[in-house]
Design a protein around this nucleic acid. Structure first.
Lengths: 206, 206
DNA sequence: AATAGTTAAGTGGTCAGACCACTTGAAGCG
DNA sequence: CGCTTCAAGTGGTCTGACCACTTAACTATT
Protein backbone atom coordinates (compact mmCIF):
# COMPACT_ATOMS: atom_id res chain seq x y z
CA UNK A 1 0.00 0.00 0.00
CA UNK A 2 1.47 3.31 -1.07
CA UNK A 3 2.70 5.27 1.88
CA UNK A 4 3.27 8.84 0.83
CA UNK A 5 3.99 11.01 3.80
CA UNK A 6 0.79 12.80 4.62
CA UNK A 7 -1.45 10.12 3.39
CA UNK A 8 -4.03 8.72 5.73
CA UNK A 9 -4.24 5.00 6.08
CA UNK A 10 -7.89 4.84 5.29
CA UNK A 11 -7.29 6.54 1.96
CA UNK A 12 -4.86 3.82 1.09
CA UNK A 13 -7.35 1.23 2.20
CA UNK A 14 -9.89 2.82 -0.09
CA UNK A 15 -7.57 2.43 -3.04
CA UNK A 16 -6.66 -1.11 -2.16
CA UNK A 17 -10.26 -2.13 -1.91
CA UNK A 18 -10.98 -0.57 -5.26
CA UNK A 19 -8.11 -2.46 -6.77
CA UNK A 20 -9.32 -5.62 -5.15
CA UNK A 21 -12.71 -5.13 -6.71
CA UNK A 22 -11.26 -4.54 -10.13
CA UNK A 23 -8.69 -7.29 -10.02
CA UNK A 24 -11.11 -9.91 -8.82
CA UNK A 25 -13.80 -8.62 -11.10
CA UNK A 26 -16.31 -8.35 -8.30
CA UNK A 27 -19.83 -7.47 -9.29
CA UNK A 28 -22.70 -5.95 -7.33
CA UNK A 29 -23.78 -8.44 -4.70
CA UNK A 30 -20.39 -10.10 -4.39
CA UNK A 31 -18.75 -10.43 -1.02
CA UNK A 32 -15.72 -8.56 0.18
CA UNK A 33 -13.13 -10.06 2.54
CA UNK A 34 -13.95 -9.64 6.20
CA UNK A 35 -12.68 -6.65 8.12
CA UNK A 36 -10.22 -8.77 10.04
CA UNK A 37 -8.93 -10.35 6.89
CA UNK A 38 -8.47 -6.99 5.20
CA UNK A 39 -6.77 -5.70 8.30
CA UNK A 40 -4.23 -8.45 8.06
CA UNK A 41 -3.72 -8.34 4.31
CA UNK A 42 -3.39 -4.58 4.09
CA UNK A 43 -1.34 -4.31 7.23
CA UNK A 44 -3.67 -1.83 8.84
CA UNK A 45 -5.62 -1.71 12.05
CA UNK A 46 -9.16 -2.88 11.91
CA UNK A 47 -10.36 0.59 12.86
CA UNK A 48 -8.72 2.06 9.79
CA UNK A 49 -10.34 -0.57 7.65
CA UNK A 50 -13.65 0.28 9.19
CA UNK A 51 -13.26 3.99 8.58
CA UNK A 52 -12.78 3.30 4.90
CA UNK A 53 -15.63 0.84 4.82
CA UNK A 54 -18.01 3.16 6.62
CA UNK A 55 -17.25 5.93 4.18
CA UNK A 56 -17.87 3.61 1.28
CA UNK A 57 -21.09 2.52 2.85
CA UNK A 58 -22.27 6.06 3.24
CA UNK A 59 -21.91 6.77 -0.43
CA UNK A 60 -23.67 3.55 -1.25
CA UNK A 61 -20.87 1.55 -2.79
CA UNK A 62 -21.11 -1.26 -0.30
CA UNK A 63 -23.66 -2.79 2.00
CA UNK A 64 -22.79 -4.44 5.24
CA UNK A 65 -24.79 -7.10 6.99
CA UNK A 66 -24.05 -7.88 10.60
CA UNK A 67 -22.99 -11.42 11.17
CA UNK A 68 -22.65 -12.03 7.46
CA UNK A 69 -20.17 -9.71 5.86
CA UNK A 70 -19.65 -6.81 3.53
CA UNK A 71 -21.03 -6.84 0.02
CA UNK A 72 -20.83 -4.71 -3.06
CA UNK A 73 -24.01 -2.74 -3.23
CA UNK A 74 -26.60 -3.96 -5.66
CA UNK A 75 -26.77 -0.62 -7.38
CA UNK A 76 -29.08 1.30 -5.15
CA UNK A 77 -27.18 4.40 -4.29
CA UNK A 78 -29.84 5.98 -2.14
CA UNK A 79 -27.30 7.56 0.09
CA UNK A 80 -25.23 8.88 -2.72
CA UNK A 81 -28.22 10.40 -4.31
CA UNK A 82 -29.17 12.03 -1.08
CA UNK A 83 -25.73 13.41 -0.71
CA UNK A 84 -25.49 14.50 -4.27
CA UNK A 85 -28.82 16.12 -3.88
CA UNK A 86 -27.83 18.11 -0.88
CA UNK A 87 -24.45 19.15 -2.13
CA UNK A 88 -23.88 18.89 -5.82
CA UNK A 89 -27.07 18.69 -7.72
CA UNK A 90 -28.57 21.37 -5.56
CA UNK A 91 -26.60 23.80 -7.60
CA UNK A 92 -28.05 22.62 -10.85
CA UNK A 93 -31.46 23.69 -11.93
CA UNK A 94 -34.35 21.42 -12.53
CA UNK A 95 -34.30 22.30 -16.21
CA UNK A 96 -30.67 21.34 -16.60
CA UNK A 97 -31.29 18.06 -14.94
CA UNK A 98 -34.30 17.11 -16.96
CA UNK A 99 -32.56 18.06 -20.15
CA UNK A 100 -29.59 15.85 -19.41
CA UNK A 101 -31.86 13.04 -18.41
CA UNK A 102 -33.76 13.35 -21.63
CA UNK A 103 -30.53 13.41 -23.59
CA UNK A 104 -29.39 10.20 -22.00
CA UNK A 105 -32.70 8.53 -22.64
CA UNK A 106 -32.62 9.59 -26.25
CA UNK A 107 -29.16 8.27 -26.85
CA UNK A 108 -30.04 5.08 -25.04
CA UNK A 109 -33.02 4.65 -27.30
CA UNK A 110 -30.70 5.00 -30.26
CA UNK A 111 -28.13 2.59 -28.94
CA UNK A 112 -30.77 0.09 -27.99
CA UNK A 113 -31.95 0.19 -31.59
CA UNK A 114 -28.84 -1.74 -32.54
CA UNK A 115 -29.58 -4.65 -30.22
CA UNK A 116 -33.33 -4.89 -30.26
CA UNK A 117 -35.32 -7.65 -31.91
CA UNK A 118 -38.97 -8.57 -32.19
CA UNK A 119 -39.08 -10.43 -28.95
CA UNK A 120 -37.62 -7.53 -27.04
CA UNK A 121 -39.92 -5.09 -28.72
CA UNK A 122 -42.75 -7.27 -27.56
CA UNK A 123 -41.45 -7.17 -24.01
CA UNK A 124 -41.66 -3.40 -24.17
CA UNK A 125 -45.22 -3.53 -25.44
CA UNK A 126 -46.32 -5.84 -22.70
CA UNK A 127 -44.62 -3.61 -20.18
CA UNK A 128 -46.57 -0.59 -21.29
CA UNK A 129 -49.84 -2.46 -21.12
CA UNK A 130 -49.29 -3.63 -17.61
CA UNK A 131 -52.11 -2.07 -15.63
CA UNK A 132 -50.46 -2.59 -12.26
CA UNK A 133 -47.85 0.05 -13.01
CA UNK A 134 -48.53 3.74 -12.83
CA UNK A 135 -47.13 6.03 -15.46
CA UNK A 136 -43.96 6.86 -13.57
CA UNK A 137 -43.17 3.24 -12.98
CA UNK A 138 -43.78 2.51 -16.61
CA UNK A 139 -41.41 5.22 -17.65
CA UNK A 140 -38.75 3.85 -15.37
CA UNK A 141 -39.25 0.25 -16.42
CA UNK A 142 -39.30 1.23 -20.08
CA UNK A 143 -36.01 3.05 -20.04
CA UNK A 144 -34.42 0.69 -17.60
CA UNK A 145 -34.96 -2.00 -20.17
CA UNK A 146 -33.60 0.16 -22.95
CA UNK A 147 -30.58 1.01 -20.86
CA UNK A 148 -29.83 -2.64 -20.43
CA UNK A 149 -30.09 -3.14 -24.15
CA UNK A 150 -27.42 -0.53 -24.73
CA UNK A 151 -24.93 -2.85 -23.10
CA UNK A 152 -23.39 0.17 -21.48
CA UNK A 153 -23.20 -0.01 -17.70
CA UNK A 154 -21.87 3.48 -17.39
CA UNK A 155 -24.69 5.04 -19.30
CA UNK A 156 -27.15 3.14 -17.16
CA UNK A 157 -25.53 4.24 -13.95
CA UNK A 158 -25.40 7.88 -14.80
CA UNK A 159 -28.99 7.77 -15.89
CA UNK A 160 -29.99 5.83 -12.78
CA UNK A 161 -28.37 8.38 -10.55
CA UNK A 162 -30.07 11.30 -12.19
CA UNK A 163 -33.35 9.47 -12.26
CA UNK A 164 -33.14 8.66 -8.59
CA UNK A 165 -32.51 12.24 -7.72
CA UNK A 166 -35.07 13.76 -9.98
CA UNK A 167 -37.73 11.28 -8.95
CA UNK A 168 -39.66 13.84 -6.99
CA UNK A 169 -40.21 16.28 -9.78
CA UNK A 170 -39.58 14.41 -12.96
CA UNK A 171 -42.40 13.79 -15.36
CA UNK A 172 -43.06 11.20 -17.97
CA UNK A 173 -43.41 11.57 -21.66
CA UNK A 174 -46.81 11.59 -23.25
CA UNK A 175 -48.74 8.35 -23.40
CA UNK A 176 -48.22 8.19 -27.12
CA UNK A 177 -44.51 8.65 -26.89
CA UNK A 178 -43.72 5.15 -25.78
CA UNK A 179 -45.97 3.61 -28.40
CA UNK A 180 -44.37 5.78 -31.01
CA UNK A 181 -40.93 4.68 -30.01
CA UNK A 182 -41.99 1.07 -30.10
CA UNK A 183 -43.34 1.66 -33.56
CA UNK A 184 -40.07 3.16 -34.62
CA UNK A 185 -38.36 -0.02 -33.55
CA UNK A 186 -40.91 -2.15 -35.32
CA UNK A 187 -40.61 -0.26 -38.56
CA UNK A 188 -36.86 0.04 -38.26
CA UNK A 189 -36.98 3.76 -38.70
CA UNK A 190 -33.83 4.79 -36.89
CA UNK A 191 -33.78 8.39 -37.96
CA UNK A 192 -37.18 8.98 -36.41
CA UNK A 193 -35.87 8.57 -32.89
CA UNK A 194 -34.18 11.93 -32.85
CA UNK A 195 -37.28 13.78 -33.93
CA UNK A 196 -39.46 11.85 -31.56
CA UNK A 197 -37.50 13.25 -28.66
CA UNK A 198 -37.50 16.69 -30.18
CA UNK A 199 -41.23 16.97 -29.75
CA UNK A 200 -41.13 15.65 -26.25
CA UNK A 201 -38.98 18.49 -25.17
CA UNK A 202 -41.62 20.98 -25.98
CA UNK A 203 -45.04 20.01 -24.85
CA UNK A 204 -45.17 17.62 -21.99
CA UNK A 205 -41.85 16.96 -20.49
CA UNK A 206 -42.78 17.72 -16.92
CA UNK B 1 -29.43 10.35 20.35
CA UNK B 2 -32.21 8.30 18.84
CA UNK B 3 -31.66 4.62 19.45
CA UNK B 4 -33.87 2.64 17.16
CA UNK B 5 -33.10 -1.04 17.36
CA UNK B 6 -31.01 -1.67 14.30
CA UNK B 7 -29.50 1.72 14.01
CA UNK B 8 -25.78 2.03 13.87
CA UNK B 9 -24.11 4.43 16.22
CA UNK B 10 -22.29 6.27 13.53
CA UNK B 11 -25.54 7.05 11.79
CA UNK B 12 -26.78 8.65 14.96
CA UNK B 13 -23.54 10.56 15.27
CA UNK B 14 -24.01 11.77 11.73
CA UNK B 15 -27.40 13.16 12.62
CA UNK B 16 -26.20 14.73 15.83
CA UNK B 17 -23.37 16.50 14.11
CA UNK B 18 -25.75 17.69 11.47
CA UNK B 19 -27.98 19.09 14.21
CA UNK B 20 -25.05 20.65 15.92
CA UNK B 21 -24.13 22.46 12.75
CA UNK B 22 -27.64 23.76 12.27
CA UNK B 23 -28.26 24.74 15.87
CA UNK B 24 -25.02 26.60 16.22
CA UNK B 25 -25.33 28.03 12.76
CA UNK B 26 -21.87 26.91 11.78
CA UNK B 27 -20.60 28.09 8.45
CA UNK B 28 -17.88 26.78 6.16
CA UNK B 29 -14.57 27.18 7.89
CA UNK B 30 -15.96 26.96 11.40
CA UNK B 31 -14.57 24.47 13.87
CA UNK B 32 -16.30 21.40 15.16
CA UNK B 33 -15.80 20.02 18.66
CA UNK B 34 -12.91 17.62 19.01
CA UNK B 35 -13.39 13.91 18.58
CA UNK B 36 -12.92 13.28 22.26
CA UNK B 37 -15.39 15.96 23.17
CA UNK B 38 -17.99 14.61 20.78
CA UNK B 39 -17.36 11.15 22.11
CA UNK B 40 -18.22 12.33 25.59
CA UNK B 41 -21.18 14.51 24.65
CA UNK B 42 -22.81 11.96 22.40
CA UNK B 43 -22.03 9.04 24.65
CA UNK B 44 -20.27 7.11 21.94
CA UNK B 45 -16.85 5.59 21.56
CA UNK B 46 -14.30 7.68 19.79
CA UNK B 47 -14.02 5.12 17.03
CA UNK B 48 -17.69 5.53 16.24
CA UNK B 49 -17.28 9.27 16.14
CA UNK B 50 -14.38 8.82 13.79
CA UNK B 51 -16.30 6.54 11.47
CA UNK B 52 -18.92 9.23 11.07
CA UNK B 53 -16.32 11.96 10.68
CA UNK B 54 -14.33 10.02 8.13
CA UNK B 55 -17.41 9.41 6.07
CA UNK B 56 -18.26 13.10 6.18
CA UNK B 57 -14.73 13.94 5.21
CA UNK B 58 -14.80 11.66 2.24
CA UNK B 59 -17.94 13.32 1.05
CA UNK B 60 -16.25 16.66 1.38
CA UNK B 61 -18.44 18.14 4.09
CA UNK B 62 -15.62 18.54 6.57
CA UNK B 63 -11.88 18.91 6.58
CA UNK B 64 -9.60 17.67 9.31
CA UNK B 65 -6.26 19.11 10.15
CA UNK B 66 -3.98 17.04 12.30
CA UNK B 67 -3.08 18.72 15.52
CA UNK B 68 -5.67 21.40 14.97
CA UNK B 69 -9.13 20.02 14.67
CA UNK B 70 -12.07 19.38 12.40
CA UNK B 71 -13.60 22.12 10.31
CA UNK B 72 -16.55 22.57 8.05
CA UNK B 73 -15.25 22.41 4.53
CA UNK B 74 -14.96 25.57 2.53
CA UNK B 75 -14.64 23.97 -0.82
CA UNK B 76 -17.59 22.35 -2.32
CA UNK B 77 -17.72 18.64 -2.58
CA UNK B 78 -15.84 17.84 -5.65
CA UNK B 79 -14.54 14.98 -3.62
CA UNK B 80 -17.82 13.18 -3.68
CA UNK B 81 -17.90 13.19 -7.40
CA UNK B 82 -14.33 12.14 -7.58
CA UNK B 83 -14.87 9.29 -5.25
CA UNK B 84 -18.02 8.17 -6.85
CA UNK B 85 -16.45 8.36 -10.22
CA UNK B 86 -13.47 6.38 -9.19
CA UNK B 87 -15.74 3.59 -8.11
CA UNK B 88 -18.22 3.72 -10.89
CA UNK B 89 -15.78 4.44 -13.64
CA UNK B 90 -13.23 1.87 -12.60
CA UNK B 91 -15.70 -0.86 -13.23
CA UNK B 92 -16.44 0.41 -16.68
CA UNK B 93 -14.75 -0.68 -19.86
CA UNK B 94 -12.81 1.69 -22.01
CA UNK B 95 -15.26 1.26 -24.84
CA UNK B 96 -18.25 2.10 -22.69
CA UNK B 97 -16.52 5.15 -21.41
CA UNK B 98 -15.46 6.51 -24.73
CA UNK B 99 -18.88 5.94 -26.17
CA UNK B 100 -20.59 7.87 -23.41
CA UNK B 101 -18.04 10.61 -23.71
CA UNK B 102 -18.64 10.88 -27.40
CA UNK B 103 -22.38 10.95 -26.82
CA UNK B 104 -22.07 13.82 -24.41
CA UNK B 105 -19.86 15.73 -26.77
CA UNK B 106 -22.27 15.22 -29.59
CA UNK B 107 -25.24 16.42 -27.61
CA UNK B 108 -23.23 19.35 -26.35
CA UNK B 109 -22.37 20.26 -29.89
CA UNK B 110 -26.05 20.23 -30.70
CA UNK B 111 -27.07 22.27 -27.70
CA UNK B 112 -24.30 24.74 -28.31
CA UNK B 113 -25.68 25.27 -31.78
CA UNK B 114 -28.57 27.13 -30.21
CA UNK B 115 -26.37 29.69 -28.51
CA UNK B 116 -23.51 30.13 -30.88
CA UNK B 117 -22.88 33.22 -32.97
CA UNK B 118 -20.22 34.38 -35.38
CA UNK B 119 -17.97 35.74 -32.73
CA UNK B 120 -18.01 32.50 -30.80
CA UNK B 121 -17.46 30.49 -33.92
CA UNK B 122 -14.44 32.61 -34.52
CA UNK B 123 -13.16 31.91 -31.04
CA UNK B 124 -13.31 28.23 -31.85
CA UNK B 125 -11.39 28.75 -35.06
CA UNK B 126 -8.66 30.66 -33.33
CA UNK B 127 -8.47 27.99 -30.70
CA UNK B 128 -7.85 25.27 -33.24
CA UNK B 129 -5.13 27.28 -34.91
CA UNK B 130 -3.25 27.88 -31.71
CA UNK B 131 0.10 26.19 -32.26
CA UNK B 132 1.00 26.09 -28.59
CA UNK B 133 -1.62 23.45 -27.87
CA UNK B 134 -1.18 19.82 -28.71
CA UNK B 135 -4.07 17.87 -30.14
CA UNK B 136 -5.35 16.61 -26.82
CA UNK B 137 -5.37 20.05 -25.33
CA UNK B 138 -7.16 21.36 -28.37
CA UNK B 139 -9.81 18.71 -28.04
CA UNK B 140 -10.33 19.59 -24.43
CA UNK B 141 -10.42 23.32 -25.00
CA UNK B 142 -12.76 22.91 -27.94
CA UNK B 143 -15.37 20.92 -26.09
CA UNK B 144 -14.91 22.80 -22.89
CA UNK B 145 -15.96 25.87 -24.77
CA UNK B 146 -18.91 24.09 -26.31
CA UNK B 147 -19.95 22.78 -22.93
CA UNK B 148 -20.04 26.28 -21.60
CA UNK B 149 -22.19 27.33 -24.49
CA UNK B 150 -24.75 24.68 -23.61
CA UNK B 151 -25.52 26.60 -20.46
CA UNK B 152 -25.83 23.31 -18.68
CA UNK B 153 -23.57 22.94 -15.67
CA UNK B 154 -24.57 19.37 -15.07
CA UNK B 155 -23.72 18.26 -18.55
CA UNK B 156 -20.37 19.95 -18.25
CA UNK B 157 -19.64 18.30 -14.94
CA UNK B 158 -20.46 14.83 -16.06
CA UNK B 159 -18.39 15.29 -19.16
CA UNK B 160 -15.55 16.81 -17.17
CA UNK B 161 -15.53 13.84 -14.88
CA UNK B 162 -15.40 11.32 -17.62
CA UNK B 163 -12.79 13.31 -19.45
CA UNK B 164 -10.65 13.55 -16.36
CA UNK B 165 -10.79 9.86 -15.80
CA UNK B 166 -10.26 8.80 -19.38
CA UNK B 167 -7.43 11.25 -19.92
CA UNK B 168 -4.85 8.54 -20.06
CA UNK B 169 -6.30 6.58 -22.90
CA UNK B 170 -8.71 8.84 -24.66
CA UNK B 171 -8.05 9.93 -28.21
CA UNK B 172 -9.07 12.92 -30.23
CA UNK B 173 -11.15 13.14 -33.30
CA UNK B 174 -9.57 13.56 -36.69
CA UNK B 175 -7.99 16.89 -37.54
CA UNK B 176 -10.75 17.60 -39.98
CA UNK B 177 -13.49 16.90 -37.52
CA UNK B 178 -13.20 20.15 -35.66
CA UNK B 179 -13.06 22.18 -38.83
CA UNK B 180 -16.07 20.36 -40.11
CA UNK B 181 -18.02 21.10 -37.00
CA UNK B 182 -17.08 24.73 -37.19
CA UNK B 183 -18.29 24.77 -40.76
CA UNK B 184 -21.55 23.25 -39.70
CA UNK B 185 -22.01 26.13 -37.31
CA UNK B 186 -21.07 28.63 -39.96
CA UNK B 187 -23.47 27.25 -42.51
CA UNK B 188 -26.18 26.71 -39.91
CA UNK B 189 -26.57 23.11 -40.88
CA UNK B 190 -27.86 21.63 -37.64
CA UNK B 191 -28.78 18.24 -38.97
CA UNK B 192 -25.22 17.60 -40.09
CA UNK B 193 -23.96 17.40 -36.53
CA UNK B 194 -25.39 13.98 -35.91
CA UNK B 195 -23.83 12.49 -39.00
CA UNK B 196 -20.54 14.18 -38.31
CA UNK B 197 -20.25 12.24 -35.09
CA UNK B 198 -21.40 9.08 -36.74
CA UNK B 199 -18.30 8.96 -38.86
CA UNK B 200 -16.08 9.72 -35.96
CA UNK B 201 -17.18 6.63 -34.21
CA UNK B 202 -15.86 4.47 -36.92
CA UNK B 203 -12.46 5.45 -38.04
CA UNK B 204 -10.37 7.17 -35.50
CA UNK B 205 -12.05 7.34 -32.17
CA UNK B 206 -9.55 4.98 -30.68
C1' DA C 1 -33.31 -41.78 8.20
C1' DA C 2 -35.46 -37.32 8.80
C1' DT C 3 -36.14 -33.59 11.68
C1' DA C 4 -35.55 -30.46 15.40
C1' DG C 5 -32.47 -28.34 18.58
C1' DT C 6 -27.78 -27.03 20.04
C1' DT C 7 -23.36 -25.30 19.53
C1' DA C 8 -19.20 -23.22 17.70
C1' DA C 9 -17.03 -20.33 14.42
C1' DG C 10 -17.07 -16.27 11.79
C1' DT C 11 -18.57 -11.52 11.08
C1' DG C 12 -19.86 -6.76 11.80
C1' DG C 13 -20.68 -3.20 15.82
C1' DT C 14 -18.76 -0.88 19.58
C1' DC C 15 -15.85 0.57 23.17
C1' DA C 16 -11.69 1.76 26.01
C1' DG C 17 -7.07 2.73 26.27
C1' DA C 18 -2.71 3.36 24.57
C1' DC C 19 0.83 5.65 21.61
C1' DC C 20 2.36 8.74 17.86
C1' DA C 21 2.82 13.16 15.08
C1' DC C 22 1.58 17.54 14.79
C1' DT C 23 -0.10 22.40 16.08
C1' DT C 24 -0.62 25.94 19.19
C1' DG C 25 0.14 29.06 22.67
C1' DA C 26 1.76 30.10 27.11
C1' DA C 27 5.55 30.02 30.24
C1' DG C 28 10.20 30.87 30.88
C1' DC C 29 14.61 32.68 29.58
C1' DG C 30 17.99 35.70 27.60
C1' DC D 1 11.05 42.63 23.90
C1' DG D 2 12.02 38.58 21.28
C1' DC D 3 13.30 33.94 21.29
C1' DT D 4 13.16 29.18 22.84
C1' DT D 5 11.04 25.49 25.23
C1' DC D 6 7.50 22.69 26.52
C1' DA D 7 3.00 21.11 27.96
C1' DA D 8 -1.67 20.57 26.45
C1' DG D 9 -4.81 19.58 22.94
C1' DT D 10 -5.92 17.30 18.60
C1' DG D 11 -6.24 14.07 14.88
C1' DG D 12 -4.15 9.32 13.28
C1' DT D 13 -3.61 4.62 14.33
C1' DC D 14 -3.37 0.20 16.56
C1' DT D 15 -4.69 -3.42 19.80
C1' DG D 16 -7.60 -6.17 22.31
C1' DA D 17 -11.75 -6.94 24.27
C1' DC D 18 -16.83 -7.78 24.27
C1' DC D 19 -21.48 -7.96 22.16
C1' DA D 20 -25.16 -9.34 18.70
C1' DC D 21 -26.10 -11.74 14.91
C1' DT D 22 -25.76 -15.33 11.01
C1' DT D 23 -24.52 -19.58 9.34
C1' DA D 24 -23.48 -24.22 9.18
C1' DA D 25 -21.95 -28.23 11.25
C1' DC D 26 -23.12 -31.27 14.82
C1' DT D 27 -26.10 -33.70 18.05
C1' DA D 28 -30.10 -35.63 19.95
C1' DT D 29 -34.74 -36.82 19.37
C1' DT D 30 -38.39 -38.81 16.93
Amino acid sequence: MSMLPNRKVYHGVLDEIQNFIVENDLKPGDKLPSERELSEKLQAGRSSIREALRAMELIGVIETRRGEGTYLSKYRPYQTVELLSSFILKQTTKEELLLVKMLLEKEAAKLAYLHIDEEKINTLSVMMDNPSLDSKEKHFAFFCYLMELTNNQLLMRIWGLIDEYSKSFTGNYSKDFYCNLINVYKTKNYSAIESLFKEVKEYDFM
